[in-house]
Simulated scan of single mutants.
Amino acid sequence: MDNAAISRPVKVAAVQAEPGWLNLQKSIDKVISLIENAGKKSVNVLRFPEVFVQGYPWSIWHHSPLSNVGFIHEYVNNSLVKESPEMDRIKKAVKAAGFFVVLGYSERDRGSIYIAQSFINPDGEIIHHRKIKPTRVERSLWGDSQADPVKCVVDTKWGEVGGLN
């Protein structure tokens, strides 16, 4: 895409809000509410933080892995599955809002969870990315990605949008 072809200002917003801690449904409701709110403010691109769905568990940095075992099953069970009714609700909200979203979340896929982000276009289509190598103690919770895909910059009608986990 030729960014010079963009003739009007692009409104980009970054979410700075509390997630629905350890509660997938509450997290999804919050994401949808924030998307709807941004839509009322004529946002073109909305970016959520890393692991917004269901929240980043800072305790992994402050306590031993053994001390964190108590919440791990709950965390895994409340992680978002990419192909799920919850993601369908998010895609529907993005489509209704008519803008581009970069969503950071804890993704559950079979027996592992990953630090993931999905680029969701106004048609509700996803380009998916996982953090290739979780950082230090993050490895006690999230798995390594296989780097497929490693695409973290995508074309939109507002220009190129990128994101890193």
Rank of each mutant, 00 (worst) to 15 (best):
I72T: 13
I132Y: 07
R130S: 06
N23A: 15
H128K: 11
V161D: 06
W158E: 12
A38Y: 08
L46A: 06
P65E: 08
V10A: 08
V81E: 13
K30P: 07
D148Q: 09
V43M: 06
F100C: 04
L141A: 00
I115H: 00
E138G: 07
Y114W: 13
V102A: 04
V137F: 08
W158I: 13
L164A: 05
I32V: 15
Q117P: 00
N44V: 02
K91M: 13
I72Q: 08
G159I: 09
S67G: 04
A17D: 08
Q146H: 13
T156H: 00
L24T: 04
A147H: 02
S27T: 10
G124W: 09
N44E: 01
T156I: 01
P85I: 09
V45W: 04
L22G: 02
S67N: 10
V76I: 08
V81M: 09
I72K: 10
Y105M: 14
W21T: 10
R108M: 12
I90P: 01
V81S: 07
D109I: 10
V102I: 01
N3R: 05
S42V: 07
S145A: 06
R136M: 11
S118Q: 04
V150Q: 05
R136E: 11
E83L: 06
V10D: 06
S59C: 08
W158V: 09
D88L: 14
E107Q: 15
G55P: 05
L22H: 03
F71G: 04
V150D: 04
S7F: 02
A14P: 00
V154T: 04
L164H: 01
